[in-house]
Write a protein that binds this DNA or RNA. Structure first.
Lengths: 192, 192
DNA sequence: TTGGTCATGCGTACACCGTACACTAATGAG
DNA sequence: CTCATTAGTGTACGGTGTACGCATGACCAA
């Protein structure tokens, strides 16, 4: 389908030129079409960006789905590390997944607890499991999941805004914070 | 000075039209100048944006400097709340302060611990104080400060990306996470 | 006063952007 | 074959950042 070809072209342009360099004209050229042809398949540029967001989210879901750790806490640690890898190794795809504004239609409802997102649902299941195992205290599962997500997104956002001196410092602080966070969820008295 | 007039115009345009609507031509018109006149005072648009970032940061520093709470933990709670207010009440200024990429020249050095930013330095002083008071456990001060910042930035970033169903949900989760975070820093056994 | 230097602002022009509009070429059903 | 639907195109418009060269005026030395 032509639409897929356009999407592939868009992903290629995004990869090589970033969001700044992602233009209708460039995508069209890459797809071997005239610029206006894209409008047969996407209402406008925003809709194309939205498709890229979807693609980025799918990539992330696949990564999360591939985490193999058995122990729920280890699983959450692996999740956190995978997130860091994703952000650094595929920055544009990552940004598409996490920073692009969602159109009204696909926003989480107020109970996004329910886990409209498979990745969040998976994480919440592991958190519940850790609580059942007695590895975590009894804090609200949604709160923990969202906090973990915010943590990661915050670090990456600060990194994107060039608030860290170096990637090395960024990674070190990211890992330290993640470790401390998971640590803080252990039952009282067990910390450190 | 003309430069100040341009900056004021830019701030006004930013406030009323956001970053999307911030164009050289609009700023020039607002300042009563021709578009090209701006280039006598700013190398290019990026440099103008950088000046806006500086302005946003100053606004934030002023807010932080104005927090009056005596108790260090209360002070940190007030900080967190002020951050939320700032993000919601002055979104563009907030974004200028926290999301605009810093030019290489003004990046934090690797020991940004040292607190190139007055706000971070203030926060770290309060954290040290809380530790001295026995209100916090002995985690690394820098780690706590950066984690707190990442927390806030992450929530706001997710909000900007429209990942929350509503402002109400956003605020509720933000506050819950902040509360849980500060709580987790208390000495073992005292949590909840 | 004259002349020169420098800072300031302006007008024009260019390349690039998203996309509205009107068009043609291809496809497939009856 | 006819005709409606779809896919793709070319042109054009209003917007963007900004390079370039010129005009103006303030200042100061001769």
């Amino acid at each position: 389908m032509t639409k897929d070809r356009i999407l592939s072209a868009a992903k290629a342009v995004l990869e090589s030129a970033g969001f700044e360099g992602l233009t209708i004209r460039k995508v069209a050229q890459r797809a071997g079409l005239s610029p206006m042809a894209l409008y047969r398949h996407f209402k406008n540029k925003d809709e194309l960006l939205n498709a890229l967001m979807q693609d980025g989210i799918s990539a992330w879901e696949a990564i999360v789905g591939g985490i193999r750790a058995r122990d729920p806490v280890k699983w959450l640690e692996a999740l956190s590390e995978a997130y860091l890898d994703f952000a650094l190794a595929q920055p544009h795809k990552f940004d598409a997944a996490f920073f692009l504004p969602a159109p009204a239609a696909r926003r989480f409802p107020d109970d996004f607890a329910a886990g409209r997102s498979p990745a969040i649902a998976l994480a919440m299941a592991r958190i519940d499991q850790a609580k059942a195992d007695g590895q975590f205290r009894d804090e609200p599962t949604l709160g923990i999941a969202v906090a973990l997500a915010a943590y990661g997104q915050g670090f990456v956002s600060m990194h994107r805004a060039k608030r860290f001196g170096s990637d090395k410092q960024f990674k070190a602080l990211y890992r330290a914070a993640q470790h401390q966070f998971l640590d803080s969820l252990k039952p009282s008295g067990k910390s450190k």
